[in-house]
Design a protein around this nucleic acid. Structure first.
Lengths: 82, 82
DNA sequence: AATAAATAACGCATATATGCGTCAATAAAA
DNA sequence: TTTTATTGACGCATATATGCGTTATTTATT
């Protein structure tokens, strides 16, 4: 059965969703498929999808790898408001 | 015994260490102790220490919580070069 | 020096990100 | 439509971040 045993921090959900949207925008603006981005960033394809959909909370190193693959700075990739 | 069974991505080590240094600088510039920052960000004190020392690879939501507690944007907190 | 405050360095349980699959659904191109 | 490319949505094992302790060490204060 599904659980609600743990407190959900709404802000945290929002930040990973906002980053997912930003990542997708950046990827598309660079004309890359998820697969190409995954290869560049050396991250599994399925993980890129989950991050773009805001399903997982990526680590700093993953964020960095994605930004590097997109030829952007974390500074710019994380420049969004909630 | 210690292991070397997995490939270590040097860049990833560098980014978490750089963030740790940046976090410490920001915290000190705001005149906060690790304990005060931990309370503000609602994360364990020991975790703040490990992050500042670059021992762990924080998630995006943790980075966000720390930046918010420091009254900074991720944009600025992650504005560093490797 | 003695005391207090701050940080380092551990341990441990649990939730979850990662890494690597597979197959379905959708979109794009032929 | 049919084929191909792309993305979504799963499953599962493993490494690790989180969360919450405790104790040691270092630093600051008196």
């Amino acid at each position: 059965m599904p659980h609600f045993r743990w407190v959900i921090n709404i802000k945290n959900v929002e930040v990973i969703k906002a980053f997912g949207r930003r990542l997708r925008d950046l990827r598309i603006s660079k004309g890359l498929s998820q697969e190409q981005l995954a290869n560049e960033a050396e991250i599994p394809l399925s993980q890129v999808g989950r991050i773009e959909r805001g399903e997982i909370n990526p680590t700093l190193s993953t964020v960095y790898a994605l930004c590097t693959a997109l030829q952007t700075n974390m500074k710019d990739a994380l420049d969004f408001k909630l």
